[in-house]
């Protein structure tokens, strides 16, 4: 089957993006978000996982003027408009950093390591940033 035919058949795969890094120490978080938006535009079944320092990406009250970088955290709130509504966070990562759901700018589902592993097992494509 040609590529075009495949696209016409509207193949929908489960795309998971695993975000493991703090938002501003490196560019991974920002460039991950760019792929997420494109994957959503391709009408794929997109879910996001935030684990390790990645949960800081969702922290309320980000103030970046002092480091001369753009605060891109409002984009996470816009994900809903792109039908990206499956946001998961690692309970282990939250507990280790003393962060609760109330500290986050978007509504998320908090999952145990075991539940996250099951969810990953269910995916077709996993991107890790």
């Amino acid at each position: 089957m040609s590529e075009e035919e495949m696209m016409d058949d509207e193949v929908v795969k489960k795309f998971m993006f695993v975000n493991r890094r703090a938002p501003y120490g490196s560019i991974y978080a920002l460039e991950s978000l760019e792929v997420v938006l494109i994957a959503a535009a391709f009408d794929q079944d997109v879910s996001l996982v935030f684990s390790d320092d990645g949960i800081y990406q969702l922290k309320k009250g980000q103030e970046t003027a002092g480091i001369g970088m753009k605060n891109f955290s409002p984009t996470y709130r816009a994900l809903e408009m792109y039908d990206v509504e499956k946001l998961y966070v690692s309970k282990t990562a939250m507990d280790a950093r003393g962060i609760s759901k109330d500290d986050l700018i978007v509504d998320v589902e908090v999952l145990s390591d075991e539940a996250l592993a099951d969810l990953m097992d269910d995916q077709d494509v996993i991107f890790s940033f």
Binding site: M6, M7, Q44, V125, F127, S128
Partner: peptide, 20 residues
């Protein structure tokens, strides 16, 4: 080219292998 090429690769391939 654009990021669509990465998403398309994820759709078309049987395995996406990430090196990083």
């Amino acid at each position: 080219s654009g990021l669509g090429q990465l998403v398309e690769a994820g759709i078309q391939a049987e395995r996406l292998v990430v090196f990083g």
